[in-house]
């Protein structure tokens, strides 16, 4: 368990990559949900189902999902920026990313 105490660069980098991967997966999930809902609205149109119900539902669900994804991304990058603003612990986040 020397790595945990030492906070070696490779260890931190690996964890950061895992975090980025999880955020990316979440966005992929969001995109697939959006595509799915759009597909279902299209199905409803093809089958002459109640289109208003489908569009109404998608108008509720899509913002809900988007909000969740946006909040998580906002927090993730907000925390990284916030960590840099007070630079009392070098070694954590060596200027990995600039964009948010």
């Amino acid at each position: 368990m020397s790595a945990t105490d030492r906070h070696s660069d490779a260890y931190l980098k690996l964890i950061f990559l895992a975090q980025i991967a999880s955020i990316t997966m979440m966005w992929m999930f969001l995109v697939s949900v959006v595509l799915w809902i759009l597909h279902l609205v299209n199905v409803a149109r093809e089958l002459h189902d109640a289109l208003t119900a489908s569009i109404g539902l998608s108008l509720i669900v899509l913002p809900a999902y988007s909000l969740v994804a946006a909040i998580l991304t906002f927090v993730f990058f907000g925390l990284r920026r916030g960590a840099r603003s007070e630079n009392d612990e070098p070694g954590e986040s060596e200027g990995e990313r600039h964009d948010s």
């Binding site: 975090q19 906002f74 927090v75 907000g78 990284r80 920026r81 916030g82 960590a83 007070e86």
Partner: peptide, 15 residues
């Protein structure tokens, strides 16, 4: 992994 680089800085609290 899960703490997302939390250090408790004022900027982080605000976010």
């Amino acid at each position: 992994f899960l703490s997302w680089g939390w250090k408790g800085t004022p900027a982080q609290w605000k976010v």
